[in-house]
Amino acid sequence: MVKMPPTVTKAIFLLLLVNVAAARADGAGDPAAITSEGGKYLDKDGNPTFKIGPDGKVDYYSYAGFVRYSANCLACHGPDGLGSTYAPSLVDAMKRLSYGDFLATVAGGKRDVSTAQTLVMPGLAENKNVMCYIDAIYVYLRGRADDAIPRGRPSLHDDKPPAYAIAENECMG
């Protein structure tokens, strides 16, 4: 990612917010897929992103992200990333978080414990069931934040790319 002075970043952010109707944007900027690498789509900054076909068919990462989100995050963040009585909405959070922010929080955790609340996001860096799929989870939540992926299980998705299967096996061991 290109490093910019904070004021510039903020200005761009505001600009993008105003432009939501025209071009979608989340905490990582414009999610439009520019390139792809073995079934994983990347935006103009090289961050992972989703790709949705005209029939609503989602790329494999978005689909795998739905599955892995539901297994590893839903128990706190609620169905479809919408938040719960226990943890905040990630659909909202992803409108603000960059790819780097996201990775840092999931790996390292986050905590806000006071007399008023007891919010603890566990650090998941050692959890293979999460970290081997972190890009998929990111892509899925990014798609949810941009309103590109609806609630529930995506009904159509691309086949599992061979590169994905190889990487998965290597990572899970």
């Binding site: 128990a75 706190c76 609620g78 169905p79 938040g83 719960s84 226990y86 909405s89």
Partner: peptide, 11 residues
């Protein structure tokens, strides 16, 4: 509270 907070969807 976790499962029902946001409401369920009808698949």
């Amino acid at each position: 509270g976790i499962g029902l907070a946001a409401g369920l969807t009808d698949p």
